[in-house]
Design a protein around this nucleic acid. Structure first.
Lengths: 208, 208
DNA sequence: GGGTCTCTCAGCCATTTGGCTGATTCCAGG
DNA sequence: CCTGGAATCAGCCAAATGGCTGAGAGACCC
């Protein structure tokens, strides 16, 4: 059997080297390349033909990980992609899985977990860290809390500290509409003030 | 000349391996050990006698990096410590430097920067990533923004999303007093709504 | 003793926010 | 074609918030 070809995508050199050091020692796994950004990953994949792409979600400037996943899958729907990131925010997990990630590992995962995830990914298996799985489960169990795209957009701006008037101008809608969206958001988040909504959003979603 | 003995402290195995891979190739630098927590670092230092401790600030459960730095310095005031972390929040930087860190690097630092920082640390030089230095400079340049203890306490609770009434009850003061404190906080933060204050606080201070 | 800082509280008033009800348009799914 | 979700807007009213001025008590420094 030929080795599993892996492409590493992370904006931190240190992390790439660490993964290379860990995965490189494993028989049957070969790191064929590294990319420091989503753009770079998209450029390298056609050339390197990796079986698995291991990538971080947060990648400094430029394209974020979610978008990179989406585009990789658009290019090749069978491309196996493993998310390897630091935080386990609800929104990120759902979006990554939605975009087509096969697995979701946290950076404090044990080496064995990482090897298993890489091997599993090529077979189409879905591997995720226990804390991630539990969060994803909660999300599925509680679909009522999912915000609509417009609501999410508004919530994101809300965490910048804007007033209703400013939100309206920014989104080209009336203040009345802003209030309606906010009321829906409060309901879904289980809060009743904008301050609590901001606090919840930043803590739950890693919005910063 | 003998090699510079380095101890790596980070809760992520991947990061430790990456640092080891990077530093290990450098002549004159020797990685003598790794620790996954502040407690572990404190236990290893007396035994390994590293010239430089390279450590992350955020370390999952248990002792945080700041506290680890403080205790290492208490044990040996001449211990050189380099902070190597992901985020550059104002408060973290100030607290780390205050606790006795010699340098402050971000995880996207270039290899050369890291080598230079390790070498500089043993000579007592202070090395920090440019974005970090600029933030630190701003802090020093603008001491007028320092909150009083009570104000800081209030701001911290504010980021939990409490109302004025709740803040008053929690701090055993009247709502009027809460409003006075808030007005002062807004002035110092340069904002004029509680939403903006929360956003600023969480983003500037890493309050989560 | 006088000045300064911090923390405490009060009252007044304009603005903002939140809760409610109801309505229209558009679009996707059955 | 009907239903339902999503997004848009309106009006009303109570509550919360923010800006202002003023003020007393205690601590600390010179």
């Amino acid at each position: 059997m030929t080795a599993i070809r892996v492409l590493l995508v992370d904006d931190h050199l240190v992390v790439r080297r660490g993964l290379r050091a860990l995965l490189g020692t494993q028989p049957g796994i070969e790191v064929v390349g590294e990319a420091a950004s989503g753009e770079e990953a998209l450029a390298l994949v056609p050339e390197l033909q990796p079986a698995v792409v291991v990538m971080d979600l947060a990648m400094g400037a430029g394209m974020d990980g979610i978008e990179a996943i989406r585009q990789l899958r658009a290019f090749n729907p069978r491309q196996a992609i493993l998310v390897f990131t630091t935080y386990d925010s609800d929104a990120d997990i759902v979006r990554a899985v939605d975009a087509g990630a096969m697995g979701y590992l946290l950076k404090d995962a044990a080496p064995g977990e990482i090897f298993a995830a890489v091997r599993g990914a090529v077979e189409g298996k879905s591997v995720m860290s226990p804390p991630v799985a539990s969060r994803l489960f909660q999300q599925l169990r509680n679909p009522g809390e999912i915000l609509t795209p417009r609501e999410a957009e508004l919530l994101s701006l809300l965490t910048e500290g804007l007033s209703n008037r400013e939100l309206g101008k920014r989104l080209f809608i009336s203040e009345a509409t802003v209030k309606t969206h906010l009321a829906h958001i409060y309901g879904k988040l289980g809060v009743d003030t904008r301050a609590a909504a901001i606090a919840t959003a930043i803590r739950r979603e890693g919005m910063r």
